[in-house]
């Protein structure tokens, strides 16, 4: 049975209370805005590249604990990553949150594992994936608006 303690792990609460890299960066090369109209989560992701790797990534917005913590952990995991690594992490996170089958087991999830408990709360999966989809769109298409619906 789904357990609340698996969802609201200490690290998730910490990141939701004190989100890292929580700032806007209007000058960033890639900016995207995501929203989940069902629950009102909103997040903007700002990405700057240095050649093929992510030099800086930050976010802003207002969302539930899961969304905020996911965004915060994401910025930490992606800073300095190559595009390829970022893509693999994106896919791994997506699968960790849905079917648990990681397509790129060689790319370690590290701290992102703490979000695994969200899988047991299907209605909350979108909260955790919203920042990642928003990042993906900032990286691949420049500025645009992402919606989970």
């Amino acid at each position: 049975m789904a357990d609340l303690d698996d969802l609201y792990r200490e690290m998730i609460l910490d990141h939701s209370r004190n989100p890292r890299n929580f700032r806007s960066n209007e000058a960033a090369a890639g900016i995207a805005h995501g929203n989940n109209p069902l629950c009102g989560d909103r997040v903007s992701v700002f990405v700057d590249l240095d050649g093929d790797s992510i030099r800086d990534i930050s976010f802003q917005g207002s969302g539930c604990a899961i969304c905020t913590a996911s965004a915060s952990l994401m910025t930490q995991a992606l800073k300095g990553a190559t595009r390829r690594r970022a893509q693999f992490l994106f896919e791994n996170v997506h699968h960790m949150l849905t079917d648990g089958k990681l397509p790129h087991p060689e790319v370690e999830l590290g701290k992102l594992h703490v979000l695994e408990g969200v899988r047991e709360f299907p209605i909350r999966v979108k909260c955790a994936t919203l920042p990642w989809h928003t990042f993906h769109s900032a990286l691949t298409r420049g500025s645009e608006i992402v919606s989970t619906e």
């Binding site: 629950c39 989560d41 539930c64 604990a65 899961i66 209605i123």
Partner: peptide, 13 residues
């Protein structure tokens, strides 16, 4: 201290 969505999940438990 808590977003409505988190309130809803905890109450559902």
């Amino acid at each position: 201290c808590a977003h409505p969505h988190d309130i809803g999940t905890i109450l559902d438990q």
